[in-house]
Design a protein around this nucleic acid. Structure first.
Lengths: 261, 261
DNA sequence: CCCAATTTGTTCGTATGTATA
DNA sequence: TTATACATACGAACAAATTGG
Protein backbone atom coordinates (compact mmCIF):
# COMPACT_ATOMS: atom_id res chain seq x y z
CA UNK A 1 0.00 0.00 0.00
CA UNK A 2 2.71 2.46 0.78
CA UNK A 3 3.04 4.75 -2.15
CA UNK A 4 5.40 7.53 -1.25
CA UNK A 5 2.83 9.66 0.58
CA UNK A 6 2.26 7.10 3.31
CA UNK A 7 0.65 7.62 6.68
CA UNK A 8 1.47 4.18 7.98
CA UNK A 9 -1.91 2.93 6.88
CA UNK A 10 -0.63 -0.62 7.15
CA UNK A 11 1.12 -2.66 9.81
CA UNK A 12 4.14 -2.86 7.56
CA UNK A 13 6.47 -0.15 6.41
CA UNK A 14 6.44 3.59 6.25
CA UNK A 15 8.69 6.59 6.06
CA UNK A 16 9.79 8.97 3.38
CA UNK A 17 11.59 8.18 0.21
CA UNK A 18 11.75 5.41 -2.28
CA UNK A 19 9.78 2.29 -1.61
CA UNK A 20 12.56 -0.28 -1.87
CA UNK A 21 14.59 1.79 0.58
CA UNK A 22 11.69 1.78 3.01
CA UNK A 23 11.63 -2.00 2.67
CA UNK A 24 15.37 -2.18 3.24
CA UNK A 25 15.13 -0.11 6.39
CA UNK A 26 12.33 -2.31 7.69
CA UNK A 27 14.35 -5.46 7.07
CA UNK A 28 17.34 -3.88 8.80
CA UNK A 29 15.14 -2.88 11.72
CA UNK A 30 13.97 -6.43 12.20
CA UNK A 31 17.54 -7.69 12.17
CA UNK A 32 18.83 -5.03 14.53
CA UNK A 33 16.00 -5.66 16.97
CA UNK A 34 16.76 -9.38 16.79
CA UNK A 35 13.38 -10.34 15.39
CA UNK A 36 15.52 -12.21 12.90
CA UNK A 37 18.75 -13.53 14.35
CA UNK A 38 22.04 -14.36 12.62
CA UNK A 39 21.81 -17.69 10.89
CA UNK A 40 18.04 -17.65 10.86
CA UNK A 41 15.98 -17.80 7.66
CA UNK A 42 13.65 -15.04 6.60
CA UNK A 43 10.13 -15.83 5.35
CA UNK A 44 10.12 -16.64 1.67
CA UNK A 45 9.97 -13.83 -0.82
CA UNK A 46 6.30 -14.03 -1.70
CA UNK A 47 5.23 -14.16 1.92
CA UNK A 48 7.44 -11.21 2.84
CA UNK A 49 6.32 -9.21 -0.17
CA UNK A 50 2.69 -9.83 0.70
CA UNK A 51 3.21 -8.92 4.33
CA UNK A 52 5.02 -5.69 3.47
CA UNK A 53 2.50 -4.98 0.72
CA UNK A 54 5.06 -4.52 -2.03
CA UNK A 55 5.73 -6.43 -5.19
CA UNK A 56 8.17 -9.27 -5.18
CA UNK A 57 10.50 -7.26 -7.41
CA UNK A 58 10.65 -4.40 -4.92
CA UNK A 59 11.36 -6.80 -2.09
CA UNK A 60 14.09 -8.45 -4.13
CA UNK A 61 15.75 -5.13 -4.77
CA UNK A 62 15.90 -4.36 -1.05
CA UNK A 63 17.27 -7.82 -0.32
CA UNK A 64 19.78 -7.44 -3.17
CA UNK A 65 21.35 -4.47 -1.47
CA UNK A 66 21.51 -6.14 1.92
CA UNK A 67 23.16 -9.16 0.34
CA UNK A 68 25.66 -6.85 -1.25
CA UNK A 69 26.35 -5.27 2.13
CA UNK A 70 26.94 -8.69 3.68
CA UNK A 71 23.90 -8.44 5.94
CA UNK A 72 21.93 -11.24 4.29
CA UNK A 73 22.84 -14.30 2.24
CA UNK A 74 20.62 -16.05 -0.26
CA UNK A 75 20.76 -19.71 -1.17
CA UNK A 76 18.77 -20.72 -4.19
CA UNK A 77 16.29 -23.42 -3.29
CA UNK A 78 16.82 -22.93 0.45
CA UNK A 79 16.02 -19.41 1.49
CA UNK A 80 17.40 -16.07 2.61
CA UNK A 81 19.33 -15.91 5.87
CA UNK A 82 20.82 -13.34 8.22
CA UNK A 83 24.53 -13.64 7.62
CA UNK A 84 26.77 -15.22 10.23
CA UNK A 85 30.37 -14.19 10.80
CA UNK A 86 32.59 -17.08 9.84
CA UNK A 87 36.31 -17.61 9.56
CA UNK A 88 35.94 -17.38 5.81
CA UNK A 89 34.33 -13.98 6.03
CA UNK A 90 36.99 -12.84 8.46
CA UNK A 91 39.72 -13.84 6.05
CA UNK A 92 37.93 -12.40 3.08
CA UNK A 93 36.81 -9.10 4.50
CA UNK A 94 38.72 -8.20 7.64
CA UNK A 95 42.11 -9.85 7.82
CA UNK A 96 44.48 -8.05 5.53
CA UNK A 97 47.92 -9.38 6.39
CA UNK A 98 49.62 -11.62 3.87
CA UNK A 99 53.12 -12.88 3.25
CA UNK A 100 55.17 -10.89 0.78
CA UNK A 101 54.64 -11.75 -2.84
CA UNK A 102 55.79 -10.34 -6.09
CA UNK A 103 53.25 -9.22 -8.63
CA UNK A 104 53.63 -12.19 -10.93
CA UNK A 105 50.57 -13.92 -9.53
CA UNK A 106 47.81 -11.36 -10.12
CA UNK A 107 44.49 -13.07 -10.70
CA UNK A 108 45.47 -15.97 -8.55
CA UNK A 109 44.43 -14.43 -5.24
CA UNK A 110 46.34 -16.70 -2.95
CA UNK A 111 43.89 -17.73 -0.26
CA UNK A 112 45.13 -15.94 2.85
CA UNK A 113 46.20 -17.94 5.85
CA UNK A 114 44.11 -17.87 9.01
CA UNK A 115 46.29 -16.65 11.87
CA UNK A 116 46.96 -18.49 15.09
CA UNK A 117 45.70 -16.19 17.85
CA UNK A 118 47.21 -16.05 21.31
CA UNK A 119 45.60 -13.93 24.02
CA UNK A 120 48.28 -12.15 26.02
CA UNK A 121 46.09 -10.23 28.44
CA UNK A 122 42.48 -9.40 29.24
CA UNK A 123 41.82 -6.44 31.54
CA UNK A 124 38.94 -4.30 32.70
CA UNK A 125 39.90 -0.63 32.64
CA UNK A 126 38.44 2.84 32.38
CA UNK A 127 38.37 4.53 29.01
CA UNK A 128 40.78 7.29 28.22
CA UNK A 129 40.04 10.19 25.91
CA UNK A 130 41.00 8.38 22.71
CA UNK A 131 38.98 5.23 23.20
CA UNK A 132 36.04 7.20 24.58
CA UNK A 133 36.03 9.43 21.52
CA UNK A 134 36.21 6.52 19.13
CA UNK A 135 33.59 4.37 20.86
CA UNK A 136 31.33 7.30 21.77
CA UNK A 137 31.70 6.76 25.49
CA UNK A 138 32.31 9.17 28.33
CA UNK A 139 35.84 9.29 29.64
CA UNK A 140 36.14 6.87 32.51
CA UNK A 141 33.43 4.50 31.30
CA UNK A 142 34.40 0.85 31.84
CA UNK A 143 36.08 -0.91 28.95
CA UNK A 144 37.79 -4.19 28.24
CA UNK A 145 41.33 -4.02 26.90
CA UNK A 146 42.63 -7.18 25.28
CA UNK A 147 46.06 -7.89 23.86
CA UNK A 148 46.42 -10.61 21.25
CA UNK A 149 49.37 -11.90 19.31
CA UNK A 150 48.73 -13.30 15.84
CA UNK A 151 51.08 -15.71 14.16
CA UNK A 152 51.31 -16.88 10.58
CA UNK A 153 53.11 -20.10 9.80
CA UNK A 154 54.26 -20.21 13.40
CA UNK A 155 55.91 -16.80 13.26
CA UNK A 156 54.53 -13.88 15.34
CA UNK A 157 53.47 -11.10 12.99
CA UNK A 158 50.75 -8.94 14.54
CA UNK A 159 50.22 -7.47 17.99
CA UNK A 160 46.61 -6.41 18.58
CA UNK A 161 45.22 -4.13 21.26
CA UNK A 162 41.44 -4.44 21.30
CA UNK A 163 39.18 -2.03 23.17
CA UNK A 164 35.45 -2.60 23.62
CA UNK A 165 32.84 -1.05 25.87
CA UNK A 166 32.04 -3.11 28.96
CA UNK A 167 28.46 -1.91 29.05
CA UNK A 168 27.89 -2.82 25.40
CA UNK A 169 29.42 -6.27 25.89
CA UNK A 170 27.65 -6.99 29.18
CA UNK A 171 28.63 -10.37 30.53
CA UNK A 172 31.95 -10.56 28.70
CA UNK A 173 34.55 -12.48 30.67
CA UNK A 174 38.09 -13.53 29.98
CA UNK A 175 36.96 -17.13 30.01
CA UNK A 176 34.29 -16.59 27.39
CA UNK A 177 36.71 -14.62 25.27
CA UNK A 178 39.49 -17.20 25.47
CA UNK A 179 37.26 -20.21 24.97
CA UNK A 180 35.38 -18.97 21.92
CA UNK A 181 35.36 -21.53 19.15
CA UNK A 182 35.30 -19.12 16.23
CA UNK A 183 36.47 -15.62 15.36
CA UNK A 184 36.16 -12.68 17.71
CA UNK A 185 33.53 -11.10 15.48
CA UNK A 186 31.56 -14.31 15.54
CA UNK A 187 31.66 -14.17 19.35
CA UNK A 188 30.40 -10.58 19.31
CA UNK A 189 27.55 -11.62 17.07
CA UNK A 190 26.39 -14.88 18.58
CA UNK A 191 26.94 -14.10 22.26
CA UNK A 192 26.26 -10.36 22.39
CA UNK A 193 24.06 -9.66 19.38
CA UNK A 194 26.56 -7.22 17.93
CA UNK A 195 27.27 -7.54 14.24
CA UNK A 196 30.38 -5.94 12.76
CA UNK A 197 29.47 -4.75 9.28
CA UNK A 198 32.52 -2.86 8.15
CA UNK A 199 35.60 -1.04 9.38
CA UNK A 200 37.49 2.21 8.98
CA UNK A 201 41.25 1.86 9.03
CA UNK A 202 44.23 4.17 9.12
CA UNK A 203 47.78 2.94 8.65
CA UNK A 204 51.06 4.63 9.47
CA UNK A 205 54.68 3.64 9.98
CA UNK A 206 56.16 3.66 13.47
CA UNK A 207 59.29 2.46 15.20
CA UNK A 208 59.04 -0.65 17.33
CA UNK A 209 58.64 -0.08 21.04
CA UNK A 210 60.54 -2.30 23.40
CA UNK A 211 57.41 -4.29 24.17
CA UNK A 212 56.59 -4.77 20.53
CA UNK A 213 60.13 -5.88 19.88
CA UNK A 214 59.78 -8.47 22.62
CA UNK A 215 56.47 -9.88 21.43
CA UNK A 216 57.19 -9.83 17.71
CA UNK A 217 60.85 -10.72 17.87
CA UNK A 218 62.01 -7.84 15.76
CA UNK A 219 65.32 -6.08 16.13
CA UNK A 220 65.96 -2.67 17.61
CA UNK A 221 64.79 0.26 15.54
CA UNK A 222 62.76 -1.87 13.14
CA UNK A 223 59.89 -0.07 11.42
CA UNK A 224 56.41 -1.44 12.06
CA UNK A 225 53.07 -0.86 10.45
CA UNK A 226 50.50 0.53 12.85
CA UNK A 227 46.88 0.12 11.80
CA UNK A 228 44.06 1.73 13.75
CA UNK A 229 40.75 0.04 13.03
CA UNK A 230 37.31 1.13 14.10
CA UNK A 231 34.68 -1.58 13.63
CA UNK A 232 31.15 -0.38 12.97
CA UNK A 233 27.78 -2.01 13.31
CA UNK A 234 24.30 -1.02 12.15
CA UNK A 235 23.73 2.70 11.90
CA UNK A 236 27.49 3.30 11.82
CA UNK A 237 27.67 2.59 15.51
CA UNK A 238 31.29 2.05 16.63
CA UNK A 239 31.72 -1.15 18.60
CA UNK A 240 35.43 -1.92 18.70
CA UNK A 241 38.69 0.01 18.49
CA UNK A 242 41.67 -2.08 17.49
CA UNK A 243 45.32 -1.08 17.15
CA UNK A 244 47.45 -3.53 15.21
CA UNK A 245 51.23 -3.48 15.10
CA UNK A 246 52.36 -5.44 12.07
CA UNK A 247 55.91 -6.67 11.53
CA UNK A 248 56.22 -6.00 7.83
CA UNK A 249 59.60 -7.59 7.35
CA UNK A 250 57.99 -10.58 5.71
CA UNK A 251 54.34 -9.54 5.47
CA UNK A 252 52.21 -6.87 3.84
CA UNK A 253 49.01 -5.08 4.67
CA UNK A 254 46.87 -5.76 1.60
CA UNK A 255 44.04 -3.71 0.20
CA UNK A 256 42.40 -4.94 -2.93
CA UNK A 257 40.30 -2.05 -4.06
CA UNK A 258 38.32 -4.09 -6.47
CA UNK A 259 34.68 -3.56 -6.91
CA UNK A 260 34.68 -1.16 -4.00
CA UNK A 261 31.03 -0.70 -4.39
CA UNK B 1 16.12 -13.70 -29.20
CA UNK B 2 19.08 -15.14 -27.39
CA UNK B 3 17.79 -17.66 -24.96
CA UNK B 4 20.67 -19.46 -23.40
CA UNK B 5 21.21 -21.94 -26.21
CA UNK B 6 22.25 -19.30 -28.69
CA UNK B 7 24.11 -19.82 -31.92
CA UNK B 8 24.63 -16.17 -32.65
CA UNK B 9 21.47 -16.12 -34.68
CA UNK B 10 21.42 -12.33 -34.43
CA UNK B 11 23.92 -9.58 -35.11
CA UNK B 12 23.89 -8.75 -31.43
CA UNK B 13 25.13 -10.80 -28.53
CA UNK B 14 26.07 -14.38 -27.94
CA UNK B 15 28.09 -16.59 -25.73
CA UNK B 16 27.40 -18.89 -22.86
CA UNK B 17 25.76 -18.13 -19.59
CA UNK B 18 23.15 -15.84 -18.25
CA UNK B 19 21.63 -13.34 -20.63
CA UNK B 20 22.29 -10.17 -18.68
CA UNK B 21 25.92 -11.20 -18.35
CA UNK B 22 26.14 -11.63 -22.11
CA UNK B 23 24.77 -8.12 -22.44
CA UNK B 24 27.30 -6.83 -19.93
CA UNK B 25 30.17 -8.41 -21.82
CA UNK B 26 28.93 -6.91 -25.07
CA UNK B 27 28.73 -3.44 -23.54
CA UNK B 28 32.22 -3.84 -22.11
CA UNK B 29 33.50 -5.00 -25.49
CA UNK B 30 32.16 -1.89 -27.16
CA UNK B 31 33.84 0.31 -24.56
CA UNK B 32 37.16 -1.51 -24.70
CA UNK B 33 37.22 -1.37 -28.48
CA UNK B 34 36.46 2.36 -28.28
CA UNK B 35 33.18 2.11 -30.15
CA UNK B 36 31.96 4.15 -27.21
CA UNK B 37 34.56 6.53 -25.79
CA UNK B 38 34.87 7.99 -22.30
CA UNK B 39 32.45 10.86 -21.85
CA UNK B 40 30.28 9.72 -24.70
CA UNK B 41 26.60 8.84 -24.31
CA UNK B 42 25.22 5.40 -25.05
CA UNK B 43 22.02 5.00 -27.06
CA UNK B 44 18.96 5.21 -24.86
CA UNK B 45 17.75 2.13 -23.07
CA UNK B 46 14.92 1.17 -25.35
CA UNK B 47 17.06 1.51 -28.47
CA UNK B 48 19.85 -0.54 -26.97
CA UNK B 49 17.50 -3.19 -25.67
CA UNK B 50 15.89 -3.50 -29.09
CA UNK B 51 19.23 -3.68 -30.84
CA UNK B 52 20.53 -6.35 -28.49
CA UNK B 53 17.18 -8.14 -28.63
CA UNK B 54 16.69 -8.27 -24.89
CA UNK B 55 14.09 -6.73 -22.63
CA UNK B 56 14.70 -3.35 -21.13
CA UNK B 57 14.92 -4.93 -17.69
CA UNK B 58 17.71 -7.23 -18.76
CA UNK B 59 19.61 -4.35 -20.30
CA UNK B 60 19.15 -2.32 -17.15
CA UNK B 61 20.56 -5.09 -15.01
CA UNK B 62 23.70 -5.22 -17.14
CA UNK B 63 24.06 -1.44 -17.00
CA UNK B 64 23.43 -1.50 -13.25
CA UNK B 65 26.47 -3.65 -12.69
CA UNK B 66 28.69 -1.53 -14.91
CA UNK B 67 27.56 1.58 -13.06
CA UNK B 68 28.42 -0.12 -9.82
CA UNK B 69 31.87 -0.94 -11.18
CA UNK B 70 32.44 2.70 -12.15
CA UNK B 71 32.51 1.91 -15.87
CA UNK B 72 29.31 3.79 -16.74
CA UNK B 73 27.39 6.65 -15.17
CA UNK B 74 23.71 7.32 -15.55
CA UNK B 75 22.01 10.69 -15.34
CA UNK B 76 18.26 10.68 -15.11
CA UNK B 77 16.78 12.70 -17.93
CA UNK B 78 20.09 12.88 -19.80
CA UNK B 79 21.42 9.46 -20.61
CA UNK B 80 24.04 6.84 -19.81
CA UNK B 81 27.71 7.72 -20.34
CA UNK B 82 31.09 6.04 -20.33
CA UNK B 83 32.67 7.27 -17.13
CA UNK B 84 35.49 9.81 -17.25
CA UNK B 85 38.29 9.96 -14.71
CA UNK B 86 37.99 13.20 -12.79
CA UNK B 87 39.78 14.73 -9.84
CA UNK B 88 36.76 13.92 -7.75
CA UNK B 89 36.97 10.28 -8.64
CA UNK B 90 40.70 10.27 -7.97
CA UNK B 91 40.14 11.67 -4.51
CA UNK B 92 37.24 9.38 -3.81
CA UNK B 93 38.62 6.14 -5.11
CA UNK B 94 42.38 6.26 -5.49
CA UNK B 95 44.02 8.84 -3.23
CA UNK B 96 44.17 7.47 0.26
CA UNK B 97 46.43 9.86 2.16
CA UNK B 98 44.85 12.11 4.74
CA UNK B 99 46.05 14.22 7.64
CA UNK B 100 45.93 12.59 11.04
CA UNK B 101 42.63 12.76 12.80
CA UNK B 102 41.23 11.31 15.94
CA UNK B 103 38.14 9.16 15.79
CA UNK B 104 35.77 11.75 17.16
CA UNK B 105 34.56 12.73 13.71
CA UNK B 106 33.23 9.45 12.28
CA UNK B 107 30.36 10.04 9.92
CA UNK B 108 31.76 13.35 8.86
CA UNK B 109 34.13 12.01 6.22
CA UNK B 110 36.34 15.03 5.87
CA UNK B 111 36.64 15.66 2.15
CA UNK B 112 40.24 14.77 1.34
CA UNK B 113 42.57 17.38 0.00
CA UNK B 114 43.79 17.17 -3.58
CA UNK B 115 47.59 17.03 -3.56
CA UNK B 116 49.90 19.40 -5.32
CA UNK B 117 51.94 17.26 -7.71
CA UNK B 118 55.52 18.04 -8.70
CA UNK B 119 57.25 15.96 -11.36
CA UNK B 120 60.85 15.34 -10.31
CA UNK B 121 61.98 13.21 -13.23
CA UNK B 122 60.76 11.48 -16.37
CA UNK B 123 62.97 8.81 -17.92
CA UNK B 124 62.82 6.12 -20.55
CA UNK B 125 64.38 2.91 -19.25
CA UNK B 126 64.32 -0.85 -19.74
CA UNK B 127 62.19 -2.93 -17.41
CA UNK B 128 63.77 -4.99 -14.70
CA UNK B 129 62.41 -8.25 -13.40
CA UNK B 130 59.99 -6.70 -10.91
CA UNK B 131 58.31 -4.22 -13.20
CA UNK B 132 58.22 -6.73 -16.05
CA UNK B 133 56.52 -9.28 -13.83
CA UNK B 134 53.98 -6.80 -12.58
CA UNK B 135 53.15 -5.27 -15.96
CA UNK B 136 53.36 -8.58 -17.86
CA UNK B 137 56.30 -7.45 -19.99
CA UNK B 138 59.48 -9.18 -20.96
CA UNK B 139 62.55 -8.11 -19.06
CA UNK B 140 64.24 -5.32 -20.99
CA UNK B 141 61.08 -4.02 -22.65
CA UNK B 142 61.02 -0.20 -22.75
CA UNK B 143 59.27 1.55 -19.89
CA UNK B 144 58.78 5.06 -18.61
CA UNK B 145 59.84 5.73 -15.04
CA UNK B 146 58.46 8.87 -13.46
CA UNK B 147 59.13 10.35 -10.05
CA UNK B 148 56.56 12.66 -8.51
CA UNK B 149 56.43 14.46 -5.22
CA UNK B 150 52.99 15.10 -3.73
CA UNK B 151 52.36 17.85 -1.20
CA UNK B 152 49.43 18.51 1.07
CA UNK B 153 48.95 21.98 2.49
CA UNK B 154 52.32 22.89 1.08
CA UNK B 155 54.16 20.14 2.90
CA UNK B 156 55.77 17.27 0.94
CA UNK B 157 54.18 14.01 2.01
CA UNK B 158 54.43 11.39 -0.75
CA UNK B 159 57.18 10.33 -3.11
CA UNK B 160 55.84 8.37 -6.09
CA UNK B 161 57.74 6.18 -8.51
CA UNK B 162 55.50 5.39 -11.48
CA UNK B 163 56.31 2.69 -14.04
CA UNK B 164 54.36 2.23 -17.27
CA UNK B 165 55.01 0.33 -20.46
CA UNK B 166 56.33 2.48 -23.30
CA UNK B 167 54.67 0.33 -25.94
CA UNK B 168 51.29 0.51 -24.20
CA UNK B 169 51.56 4.30 -23.82
CA UNK B 170 52.83 4.90 -27.32
CA UNK B 171 53.43 8.59 -27.89
CA UNK B 172 53.91 9.47 -24.24
CA UNK B 173 56.37 12.31 -23.76
CA UNK B 174 57.60 14.23 -20.77
CA UNK B 175 55.94 17.33 -22.16
CA UNK B 176 52.54 15.68 -22.48
CA UNK B 177 52.90 14.22 -19.02
CA UNK B 178 53.91 17.47 -17.38
CA UNK B 179 51.38 19.60 -19.19
CA UNK B 180 48.32 17.47 -18.54
CA UNK B 181 45.45 19.51 -17.16
CA UNK B 182 43.86 16.82 -15.04
CA UNK B 183 44.87 13.72 -13.11
CA UNK B 184 47.33 11.17 -14.41
CA UNK B 185 44.58 8.60 -14.80
CA UNK B 186 42.56 11.10 -16.79
CA UNK B 187 45.57 11.51 -19.10
CA UNK B 188 45.86 7.75 -19.53
CA UNK B 189 42.19 7.60 -20.45
CA UNK B 190 41.74 10.56 -22.75
CA UNK B 191 45.11 10.49 -24.52
CA UNK B 192 45.90 6.77 -24.58
CA UNK B 193 42.53 5.06 -24.30
CA UNK B 194 43.55 3.26 -21.13
CA UNK B 195 41.03 3.26 -18.31
CA UNK B 196 42.15 2.42 -14.78
CA UNK B 197 39.31 0.56 -13.13
CA UNK B 198 40.75 -0.51 -9.81
CA UNK B 199 43.97 -1.18 -7.95
CA UNK B 200 45.70 -3.77 -5.80
CA UNK B 201 47.83 -2.33 -3.03
CA UNK B 202 50.27 -3.68 -0.48
CA UNK B 203 51.63 -1.55 2.36
CA UNK B 204 54.63 -2.07 4.57
CA UNK B 205 56.84 -0.03 6.89
CA UNK B 206 60.38 0.86 5.81
CA UNK B 207 63.17 3.14 6.95
CA UNK B 208 63.75 6.30 4.97
CA UNK B 209 66.50 6.16 2.42
CA UNK B 210 68.78 9.13 2.08
CA UNK B 211 66.98 10.23 -1.08
CA UNK B 212 63.56 9.94 0.51
CA UNK B 213 64.82 11.93 3.47
CA UNK B 214 65.97 14.67 1.14
CA UNK B 215 62.72 14.87 -0.87
CA UNK B 216 60.32 14.52 2.04
CA UNK B 217 62.30 16.46 4.60
CA UNK B 218 62.17 13.75 7.24
CA UNK B 219 64.86 13.09 9.78
CA UNK B 220 67.35 10.27 9.82
CA UNK B 221 65.94 6.85 10.64
CA UNK B 222 62.34 7.95 10.30
CA UNK B 223 59.89 5.18 9.44
CA UNK B 224 57.96 5.56 6.20
CA UNK B 225 54.96 3.82 4.74
CA UNK B 226 55.72 2.11 1.44
CA UNK B 227 52.71 1.30 -0.72
CA UNK B 228 53.03 -0.78 -3.87
CA UNK B 229 50.08 -0.21 -6.17
CA UNK B 230 49.21 -2.08 -9.32
CA UNK B 231 46.56 -0.34 -11.41
CA UNK B 232 44.33 -2.59 -13.53
CA UNK B 233 42.21 -1.97 -16.57
CA UNK B 234 39.61 -4.07 -18.36
CA UNK B 235 40.13 -7.78 -18.10
CA UNK B 236 42.41 -7.28 -15.09
CA UNK B 237 45.16 -6.04 -17.38
CA UNK B 238 47.94 -4.34 -15.38
CA UNK B 239 48.78 -0.91 -16.76
CA UNK B 240 50.77 0.91 -14.08
CA UNK B 241 53.05 -0.01 -11.19
CA UNK B 242 53.42 2.68 -8.58
CA UNK B 243 55.53 2.73 -5.43
CA UNK B 244 54.59 5.40 -2.92
CA UNK B 245 56.70 6.44 0.03
CA UNK B 246 54.48 8.20 2.54
CA UNK B 247 55.75 10.29 5.40
CA UNK B 248 53.29 9.24 8.07
CA UNK B 249 54.44 11.66 10.73
CA UNK B 250 51.40 13.81 10.12
CA UNK B 251 49.41 11.74 7.62
CA UNK B 252 47.70 8.35 7.39
CA UNK B 253 47.01 5.85 4.68
CA UNK B 254 43.25 5.45 4.89
CA UNK B 255 41.12 2.50 3.91
CA UNK B 256 37.43 2.76 4.48
CA UNK B 257 36.21 -0.76 3.97
CA UNK B 258 32.65 0.25 3.66
CA UNK B 259 30.31 -1.42 1.31
CA UNK B 260 33.18 -3.27 -0.33
CA UNK B 261 30.96 -4.47 -2.67
C1' DC C 1 7.61 30.71 -16.71
C1' DC C 2 5.67 26.89 -18.46
C1' DC C 3 5.12 23.09 -21.53
C1' DA C 4 6.45 19.13 -24.05
C1' DA C 5 9.70 15.71 -25.48
C1' DT C 6 13.31 12.70 -24.02
C1' DT C 7 15.61 9.72 -20.82
C1' DT C 8 16.43 7.31 -16.77
C1' DG C 9 14.23 5.67 -12.14
C1' DT C 10 10.77 2.96 -9.73
C1' DT C 11 7.13 -0.28 -9.19
C1' DC C 12 4.22 -3.68 -10.60
C1' DG C 13 2.98 -8.48 -12.04
C1' DT C 14 3.79 -12.75 -14.67
C1' DA C 15 6.11 -16.65 -16.62
C1' DT C 16 9.73 -19.73 -16.61
C1' DG C 17 14.29 -21.74 -15.11
C1' DT C 18 17.20 -23.89 -11.50
C1' DA C 19 18.79 -25.52 -7.04
C1' DT C 20 17.43 -27.89 -2.76
C1' DA C 21 15.37 -31.12 0.23
C1' DT D 1 9.10 -37.06 -8.09
C1' DT D 2 7.30 -33.39 -5.96
C1' DA D 3 7.16 -29.17 -3.48
C1' DT D 4 9.56 -25.09 -2.18
C1' DA D 5 12.46 -21.13 -2.77
C1' DC D 6 15.36 -18.25 -5.15
C1' DA D 7 17.04 -16.68 -10.15
C1' DT D 8 16.17 -14.79 -14.52
C1' DA D 9 13.61 -12.56 -18.11
C1' DC D 10 9.91 -10.00 -19.86
C1' DG D 11 7.16 -5.84 -20.55
C1' DA D 12 3.92 -2.31 -19.00
C1' DA D 13 2.85 1.88 -16.48
C1' DC D 14 4.01 5.85 -14.17
C1' DA D 15 7.40 9.09 -11.70
C1' DA D 16 11.19 12.30 -11.88
C1' DA D 17 15.00 14.89 -13.96
C1' DT D 18 16.70 17.33 -17.96
C1' DT D 19 16.55 20.03 -21.98
C1' DG D 20 14.89 23.08 -25.33
C1' DG D 21 11.26 25.71 -27.25
Amino acid sequence: MPSVPNISSSPSISGPGVLYLQVKRELLRRIETHQWRPGQALPNERTLATELQVSIGTLRRAVDELVHEHVLVRHQGKGTFVKLHSKDRYLFQFFRVQAHEDWSHLGLKAAPEYPQVQCLSFERQRSDEVSAGALRLREGDPIFVIHNRLSLSGRPVVLDRIVISASLFKGMTEKRFRERENTIYNLYQTDFGITVLHTQERARAVLATREAMRHLGVTNGAPLLEVQRLALSFGERPVELRTSLIASQRHDYVTDVTRNE
